[in-house]
Design a protein around this nucleic acid. Structure first.
Lengths: 346, 346
DNA sequence: CTGAAAGCGCTAACAT
DNA sequence: ATGTTAGCGCTTTCAG
């Protein structure tokens, strides 16, 4: 019932706490026999070192913070899962915090984590975040930060990202390769970099294939919801009756499109192909199933932790962190909302 | 860059650490003027108390552990979200861990959390868990545990649950009230209590309405997947061509059923009504949209934390914890996979 | 091979 | 009103 401490072990064995501590850590200068006695007693009394004391002494908590924009979200919950798994392997535990895309929350959470003496922080910038003083402050205090998913080029830190431009390029190219000639794009609002990059990727693919870019084929929506996809699908088909492909910024949007096309009796993929983005679970249950770009959340979470771990170790050795950027490859998952390829993409 | 400590503040101001500490905590026996000086300097130097030291001193970490069977899951990620939000309000941070339904992991994670000196633990039992020694041990060490969702009556602790029996009863009653006379039930495997309870609820509703129970209408599946629902839907309609309702153990199953009925041109809800369970996001995007029982994950997470907080406080006061059980109400969300009610349920 | 001692940063009882 | 002291549990010189 009362916690077992080093002191207690020492008292029972008639040794000093120093010796017990060393024995438990398998120091070479301890008699094998005493070592055994110590270890035996420790296990039988189920001794667990007090990590608060350890942390205070060693200046490390073996705790990291993970700041997530939105927990209830297929992509992000995968990131949590990957991060926790990787952390556990290295003996770290993960404190999870949610910003709801609010800058204020982001600042606040960074402070909370510093208070808890975390050894490092994984952060995805909130959409609201425009300045980065608060982040620099944390890094300057000696707590490494690794940015994942939503990053800023202006912050000097390690990062884990996907190449949105390339991914969107590939998605568009895939539609073209499967025979599409007139492809609409549903994009998000102006600001977030991901929106811009996917839009650029879309345009580049058109250019590469000598398809003239037509701004009338680009639809913008503020909220990336199922309802918006549903609403825009009708508009798209009304505006351009010969449209034969839709590349949506995210699966949710694409799902709404699918549903509306279904209602309007627009055959998918025979008349129009639909491509989503993220490869959420729901792609598997739509009618038809939704082709999408796989966005590897789990891997991102894992890699982000590994990168952070590296930075933590570097810092502990007193060396300077050399920011590293890892790009996780995405790939297309063809399902039934797009036609089979007529030629092979590379 | 170097961390600001009490000592440093004291040195600068020519005071003792004790005075500085008290000033910051607004003790009454400190001169208002010195208080001001201290607070001003502390804020200007952005002083943050070292929580490791505080924890060591005060025997509390202001950290709790949340053990989740599966993070990437609509219901559970809602629980995480609710728990974190409630915890933050009370100045607690949350360490999240995942068991993947493994008993070994559950034991292991409990140990990890104890090592980190968490002040309390929120736990949903893994499906594999049959004995409870490891849980009792934690409680005996003075770390309160609150069980949520998957609990055991054999463990003496506070709990947050839904009444699966009642919820399933209501779901079945709803189908009956909307005109169903022959209702199939897709249940999970034998063991987990939730499966059993929902099955009992289903039977009770039939009995209450004088509908004879027919075991041939009960379908069991090991994996609660979309594919299983898809597979069983055909079997159900082949076995009983006059079936007019399906109550599935979970939304995923129901979604598979919907899809298969769609392919088989079985009109839903005109010929067969379909009711899911959990009210996941995907209920909104199926065709037709899926009626379901709302399982309030967010609220459960919040309440579970609040209960834990109460237990932590009780323990800190040296009093004994009186286990309390909170039942979160569920309710039916009618959508388009069931017919409109012909009479009002109560 | 073992132990004494110092100290990580903070708090609280007890002086002064 | 302020300071002294001791100690939370652990690690690590350094001395023996």
């Amino acid at each position: 019932m009362p916690k077992t401490t080093l002191k207690k072990l020492a008292a029972i064995l008639g040794l000093s706490t120093a010796t017990v501590s060393k024995a438990l850590k398998n120091y070479p200068d301890i008699n094998e026999n005493t070592k055994k006695r110590v270890v035996d007693l420790a296990t039988s009394l189920n001794y667990q070192p007090n990590s608060l004391a350890q942390g205070l002494r060693n200046q490390e908590s073996k705790l990291i913070g993970l700041i997530i924009p939105e927990i209830v979200h297929h992509f992000f919950s995968n990131i949590i899962s990957g991060c926790i798994k990787a952390a556990e392997k290295r003996g770290y535990l993960v404190i999870v915090l949610q910003t709801n895309e609010s800058f204020e929350q982001e600042k606040n959470h960074l402070k909370l984590l510093m208070n808890k003496n975390v050894d490092g922080i994984l952060l995805s910038l909130s959409d609201d975040t425009t300045q980065h003083k608060h982040i620099k402050q944390v890094i300057d205090k000696g707590i490494p930060i690794v940015l994942y998913d939503k990053i800023s080029k202006l912050i000097k830190s390690s990062k884990v990202i996907i190449d949105d431009q390339k991914a969107a390029f590939n998605a568009t190219q895939y539609l073209i390769d499967s025979g599409c000639k007139k492809i609409a794009h549903i994009r998000g609002d102006l600001k977030p970099q991901t929106t811009i990059d996917r839009f650029i990727g879309y345009k580049k693919a058109l250019a590469k294939n000598n398809i003239p870019f037509d701004n009338a084929l680009v639809y913008r929506c503020k909220n990336l919801t199922y309802g918006e996809g549903f609403r825009l699908a009708k508009k798209i088909i009304q505006d351009h009756e010969d449209v034969d492909g839709v590349f949506a910024f995210t699966d949710l949007l694409a799902t709404g499109v699918l549903k509306r096309f279904n209602e309007l009796k627009v055959p998918v993929p025979e008349q129009v192909s639909v491509m989503g983005f993220s490869d959420w679970f729901l792609t598997k249950i739509t009618t038809p199933t939704l082709s999408s770009v796989h966005q590897p959340g789990f891997e991102m979470g894992q890699q982000a932790f590994e990168l952070l771990y590296k930075d933590i170790c570097t810092l502990k050795k007193g060396e300077e962190i050399i920011p590293q950027i890892i790009e996780i490859p995405t790939y297309i998952v063809p399902r039934n909302s797009t036609r089979k390829l007529t030629k092979q993409t590379k």
